[in-house]
Design a protein around this nucleic acid. Structure first.
Lengths: 200, 200
DNA sequence: GGACAACCGGACCGCTCGGTCATGTTCTGA
DNA sequence: TCAGAACATGACCGAGCGGTCCGGTTGTCC
């Protein structure tokens, strides 16, 4: 059982780290995070052996947040709308968090918590896609992994001007989604990625 | 007039820096670049006052490469095909170069050479879009700036698995392009970015 | 061929980073 | 209430960074 002050400090730390990572990317220093949390630097390393572990925990939380939303949307009776909202939520998370994409590239292979969250995300995306395809709204030649990868497309497109144009990602997400519709479909030049490629 | 050895070393330096930045992103150390070029670290700072300047020069070269291709394609008699090839070239450059997107976000405002190259890129994209729209192939509610921003979408989408799946970006570029076609058009929720937002 | 400017190189500087550790403090259970 | 375990802290460490500088080297021009 953790002591009460340890629980409180861990909470402060997680919040501060999440905020710093979101605002400034995953290269913010531990010192800065500790200061923002109002705790000492050493305390950070009491809760997490390494900076990478801290980042992984936060990143994995974000992924689970999206998984949860996806599971709820999978029950919707408007499959196309559900898929679109899933993509909206996922893109918004990334648009708000500068560390998200960096974290995805940096530690998807090393941290097992992240690994399983990514699997769960792929699963729920697969369900949402299958539902939308069954309803005839979405082209048949795309997969759940396609959707997961496309989650970063719109937010990254606007990354260089995101401060001056918040919300612009919605414009490109709409364009991307237009490309996913059944009647937009043209043959794709490359097969979908395999689960093994995604998993790493 | 530069001395012959200085010219040769500058060439070696540029090539090595471009390769390192492309392979490892813009955070590679000057020491590493110098070693790869087979020159001393001090020599790097003889040619460029700061690391940022070196990065800017290379980044701006890449942009001009794309501008040149765009100008050629603007003369094509297949406007839709020209736009698609423009996007293909731009996306491929980014897919091959890990520093590209970082550089775009980091120094588009500070370095004037980059600034003007970005303007030229926006101009040529505007022309290509206008041509394709006049031909009726591309939806009317998008702009050249949209295209420039979308250049990063596909390459960034696959960034986390790009080593395991080279060329996968072509799949998502095709999807994005499908979303740009006239008959895919659904109303967009957000207006296009202004030139001022893009310029910074 | 010689003089001199241009150029090269790597030891060096100040700084920041992630991570450690000894010391002092605070909570908790009996 | 109090012993002792759990926890917090910030000075400290080695490594690596961008950038500087000066003694030695090399190309160039008369």
């Amino acid at each position: 059982m953790m002591r009460a002050d340890a629980v409180r400090n861990r909470r402060l730390l997680m919040d501060a780290a999440a905020a710093e990572f979101a605002e400034n990317g995953m290269d913010v220093s531990i010192t800065r995070i500790a200061t923002r949390a109002g705790i000492g630097k050493g305390t950070v390393f009491r809760h997490f052996d390494t900076k990478e572990q801290l980042l992984a925990e936060i990143f994995s939380d974000r992924l689970e947040e999206l998984v949860t939303a996806g599971l709820r949307l999978a029950e919707s009776d408007d499959p196309a709308g559900a898929l679109f909202e899933f993509m909206t939520i996922g893109t918004e998370i990334q648009a708000r968090d500068r560390s998200f994409c960096q974290a995805a590239a940096a530690l998807s292979r090393s941290e097992s918590a992240v690994h399983t969250s990514r699997e769960r995300l792929a699963d729920v995306a697969e369900t949402l896609v299958a539902n939308a395809q069954r309803a005839g709204a979405i082209r048949d030649d795309i997969t759940g992994l396609d959707i997961v990868l496309l989650l970063s497309a719109a937010s990254q497109a606007v990354l260089s001007i995101s401060e001056d144009a918040p919300g612009l990602w919605r414009r490109y997400l709409a364009m991307v989604f237009d490309g996913l519709r059944t009647r937009s479909a043209h043959p794709l030049p490359v097969p979908a990625p395999t689960r093994a490629q995604f998993t790493g």
